[in-house]
Design a protein around this nucleic acid. Structure first.
Length: 591
RNA sequence: GGUCCCGUAGUUCAACGGAUAGAACGGAAGUUUCCUAAACUUUAAAUACAGGUUCGAUUCCUGUCGGGAUCACCA
């Protein structure tokens, strides 16, 4: 690799010139800023203590050494303490010739047998997916693609939270007020139907609490003694006792929900290799906990509830089984982790879960360690920030949740209106047009979400629809489509580049970006950050658009130059498509 | 209150401890007889505050102020 060669050579230079030992890691190589000559830059300030010379003199000596020893370096210049290298044209041309037609340029061939497991989505079956799930799904999916591009063997798993008190609330409400309504009779998607009853439960529950407090009962007590809540808890106990009626109702409603989820996933372009259901993992969790009690690692209190004492780790006691013997979230997660480890022996188990659960994952790992499972530290919480609305966090109780299906509908409608307005689909068949605006709508939505650093909270304003201009998915899609159109019109075959041509600086800028792609994939994998890929793709598209605007390609009369620019264009289109692919975004052939 | 995260142009996002802090949207001014104007060009505009470490700090450390998350027999 050119970059590591440069660092290595600088390290050798510093060693031979000044006797200072350093590894190539100690050298900060960066891209040369636009306003200076050259492609790569090194700051020599750290070496001046050893050289006992001015930064300028030090940089000049190192530059001369590297120029003499690396054929790739054609020349160098020094500005203050910064050493700028100019790379030989021949190097760039060879690079272009050898990779321009690779569709998997920058990808590492899968060679490793070790498994990385990644969990994402993890929906509850009592309500439909919302904007928060969208970020989760897109992140999980994209990180998977990026890890695969890094040669990893990745297994995508979903964990469906299909049991618990929240599901019972939907079930109870449907039982009481549903009149036998089904997705078929109501015309509602199954997940939306279940969600409707969850909302209904809360409505009546609040009403009951209001009624009780009006009678002078304290709110906290009212919440616990509400007949609806008691009935939901009773239902959960019956469920764990495998009561036939309850199980049947549960299976029926869950089946509706799964059908709805499946549609949403398909539309989002998301899938899984394996789906776990908490209903079949929580028992494993319970038995792990019981085993822990028997071994004296966990505490059973007089009321029969079970706790993990984490005070010596600086945390509190954590409940693992309720006094009535039913399990909690943590119990389920212990069981799921255990089963997964048994099944895959994964080297790493990545959980894509919001940062509101940071504490939960700290506890999960500590409890597993306490129980003696040394694979606890294979668990990594890929903690991502919340999607916030202008008014703050989404609250289902306040009805401010942005529904995933609704949002995708709106995006498509906007894409359609926009395409119509611009006259973009006038000569499209109706089916092709429909596909186009679906692709653009999803491109805009996915890019909007993925361009933000996963760890950071992000803001979504529902009243301003997501843009299609500027730093957006459609901008990159458009750049790709324009190149494709060029290539169609270039009737002659595109051949390897001969070496005697002038390269303009705008062209070098593009080549340098293309050259950087493999290391972007690597760093994005290490950081689990699709945002790095997204920002790279934008930079490349922007750079190409400037080139396209300013430099003639098809109408260039010099055949050799024309060919060179077409090669550059084809390569760029390939990388744009590849990078967007890592984000789960399609790029159209024309738009 | 304890713990954790975050404060960058009007707004939404960038910036392995490196040069004059980059983009996009919005604002102002332009570009189409020419490869797709969902594009391009020019322009105004920002590191919350106070210290410290460093040749060099938006980045690391401490404190202040502001915002968020979490600390459930919820998930």
């Amino acid at each position: 690799m050119l970059e590591s060669k440069l660092c290595q050579s600088v390290a050798t230079a510093v060693n031979t010139l000044y006797g200072l030992q350093l590894s190539s890691k100690d050298i900060s190589l960066q891209k040369t800023r636009k306003e200076f000559e050259g492609e790569f830059t090194i700051a020599v300030f750290p070496f001046v203590r050893a050289s006992k010379k001015s930064p300028e003199a030090t940089a000049t000596e190192i530059g001369q050494y590297v120029k003499d020893n690396l054929t790739e370096v054609e020349d160098f210049n020094v500005i203050k303490g910064f050493l700028n290298f100019q790379i030989a044209k021949a190097y760039w041309l060879t690079f272009l010739n050898s990779h321009q037609n690779e569709t998997d340029f920058g990808f590492v061939k899968a060679a490793e047998s070790e498994v990385i497991m990644i969990e994402y989505s993890s929906p509850n079956t009592n309500k439909p997916l919302h904007l928060g799930h969208i970020r989760n799904n897109l992140l999980g999916w994209s990180v998977t693609q990026i890890l695969k591009a890094n040669g990893k063997n990745v297994v995508k798993v979903n964990l469906v939270n299909d049991r618990g008190i929240h599901i019972c609330k939907s079930m109870l409400a449907w039982q009481k007020w549903g009149n036998g309504e089904t997705p078929l009779t109501s015309g509602l998607k199954g997940d939306h139907l279940a969600g409707k009853y969850y909302v209904l439960f809360n409505k009546y529950y609040q009403a009951e609490i209001a009624e009780l407090t009006a009678k002078g009962i304290e709110k906290e007590i009212a919440e616990k003694e509400s007949s609806l809540m008691l009935a939901a808890q009773e239902m959960l106990r019956k469920w764990e006792a495998k009561d036939e009626t309850i199980i049947l109702l549960w299976e029926t409603m869950n089946a509706w929900v799964y059908e709805g989820f499946e549609q949403t996933y398909r539309r989002m372009g998301i899938d899984f290799d394996k789906t776990y259901y908490e209903s079949s993992t929580y028992l494993s969790g319970k038995s792990i906990v019981e085993k822990g009690v028997a071994e004296g690692k966990l505490i059973r209190k007089p009321d029969q509830s079970v706790w993990a004492d984490l005070t010596s780790e600086g945390l509190d006691e954590k409940l693992l089984l309720r006094s009535d013997g039913t399990s909690v979230y943590m119990t389920q997660d212990l069981g799921t982790a255990f089963l997964r480890h048994e099944e895959y022996q994964a080297q790493q188990m990545i959980y894509v879960v919001g940062n509101e659960q940071n504490y939960h994952f700290d506890v999960l790992k500590l409890v597993l360690q306490k129980l003696g499972y040394n694979w606890a530290d294979t668990i990594q919480h890929l903690s991502y920030g919340m999607v916030e609305l202008p008014a703050g966090k989404m609250k289902s109780r306040e009805g401010t949740v942005v529904d995933a299906d609704d949002l995708m509908d709106e995006m498509e409608k906007t894409a359609y209106d926009k395409a119509l307005e611009l006259g973009k689909i006038d000569d499209f068949e109706s089916e092709e047009a429909r596909q186009l605006y679906a692709v653009i709508a999803m491109g805009a939505l996915k890019y909007f979400i993925l361009k933000v650093d996963p760890q950071k909270n992000m803001l979504f304003n529902p009243t301003e629809s997501i843009d299609f201009n500027g730093h957006t998915g459609p901008f990159i899609q458009y750049t790709h489509a324009r190149i494709k159109s060029l290539i169609k019109k270039a009737s002659a075959d595109i051949s390897p580049i001969s070496e005697n041509i002038e390269i303009q600086s705008k062209e070098i800028d593009i080549i340098r970006l293309l050259h950087e792609y493999p290391s972007v994939i690597k760093i994005a994998g290490e950081n689990r950050s699709p945002a790095l890929i997204a920002n790279f793709a934008f930079e490349l598209a922007k750079e190409y658009n400037g080139f396209y605007q300013e430099i003639t390609i098809l109408k260039e009369e010099n055949e050799v130059l024309r060919n060179f620019r077409l090669v550059l264009s084809v390569f760029t289109a390939n990388i744009l498509k590849s990078a967007m692919g890592l984000l789960g975004i399609d790029v159209p052939e024309r738009m």
